[in-house]
């Protein structure tokens, strides 16, 4: 972005973000010094914790709505089209000699793919896994072909997009993620009620006057943003896990929807912080480590949920039978 009007318009807010990210770095470095935590000596770890922490908020925030609409697969499909976006970005850069961040290209392509999936599902009247699988493999194939078309310098960097990389989270990429995070959280906060209604009961939502198609498009677009944001450290292949696993874990123990939303964010934060720390200590790939921790958390929650319901049965066996016994209900009502 050299000299153009757009470049200038973007520069000022970027400077602010970069400054803020610098202060975050200082703060973590100070904490590291005080507590003698060696990994906090490195700026890339500061960026990793920042990016990871934000992903752990926005992925479950969007994922909760997706999972409970049985649309968990859409994250996977969008991640693979985002990979195509990365390839397009790299391709354009090498042809035209521009310096566009491949992640920007990924955001654009993933958003387009999100809308394409929505349109397909509106036409065919269902989120069918076939169309999802087609979008998924088309994206990945396109990415693979574009990259092979100009090998050389390109192929080297491809692993970082496939598997993610802690060490390559630059300040620019962190800034992009902060922007995505702000967009996603503001949009979900403002449209929480509408998204919840559409998620729970689409027909009733339509009767209540909500434009369901519009909210579906909104939801998939948000998913695209989360996917691209999380791709940096999670990688294409594992990014969908952040949308799904913490949400599934929270659903095991939560009773209400708001409760489930909060729980999934907390569990995702645990997975990210523990995962990044472990991956630094044992020099393992961050994305994989985070997902394994998240799955471990999920298993723990399944067990906790089982215990909870067993204790529930033991403690209030009367109340549980009410749920099954129609008689108690009928007489109480009238």
């Amino acid at each position: 972005m050299t000299g153009s009007a757009i470049g200038d318009a973007v520069r000022a807010p970027y400077e602010v973000l970069a400054w803020l990210i610098g202060r975050w770095s200082d703060a973590l470095a100070a904490v590291g010094d005080a507590l003698g935590i060696g990994m906090l000596d490195y700026v890339f770890m500061h960026h990793a914790f920042l990016v990871g922490g934000l992903i752990a908020v926005m992925a479950p925030l969007v994922g909760t709505f997706l999972v409970h609409r049985q649309m968990a697969l859409i994250g996977d499909a969008l991640a693979h089209t985002a990979f195509a976006g990365v390839a397009v970005g790299l391709f354009v850069n090498s042809i035209l000699g521009t310096g566009i961040s491949p992640y920007i290209a990924a955001v654009v392509v993933a958003m387009l793919a999100a809308l394409a999936i929505e349109l397909i599902s509106e036409v065919t009247d269902a989120y069918n896994d076939v169309s999802m699988a087609i979008v998924l493999s088309t994206g990945f194939a396109l990415g693979a072909v574009l990259i092979s078309l100009n090998t050389g310098g390109l192929a080297v960097g491809i692993n970082q997009y496939l598997f993610g990389n802690l060490a390559t989270v630059s300040r620019e990429n962190a800034a992009l993620l902060v922007v995505l995070f702000l967009v996603v959280s503001v949009v979900v906060t403002v449209t929480y009620k509408q998204l919840l209604y559409v998620t729970f009961d689409e027909t009733a939502a339509r009767v209540a006057g909500l434009d369901v198609r519009w909210y579906n498009r909104l939801m998939t677009s948000l998913t695209a943003m989360v996917v691209v944001g999380a791709m940096q450290i999670m990688g294409v292949i594992l990014v969908a896990a952040m949308l799904v696993v913490p949400v599934a874990a929270a659903a095991q123990v939560a009773r209400g929807f708001r409760e489930a939303l909060l729980a999934s964010v907390v569990l995702a934060e645990i997975a990210v912080i523990v995962g990044i720390t472990l991956s630094y200590r044992y020099e393992a790939t961050a994305g994989g480590t985070i997902v394994l921790v998240a799955v471990a958390v999920y298993v723990a929650m399944v067990l906790a949920g089982k215990l909870q319901s067993r204790r529930g049965v033991a403690e209030e066996s009367g109340a549980t039978t009410t749920a099954v016994d129609p008689d108690a209900d009928g007489t109480a009502g009238d």
């Binding site: 409970h68 209604y197 729970f200 209540a208 659903a251 929807f257 409760e259 489930a260």
Partner: peptide, 17 residues
């Protein structure tokens, strides 16, 4: 939506949305 965690009060509140 069998497994969706949502309370009775939350569902009824949708009427106010």
């Amino acid at each position: 939506t069998k497994r969706m965690p949502i309370t009775v009060a939350e569902v009824v509140l949708m009427g106010r949305f």
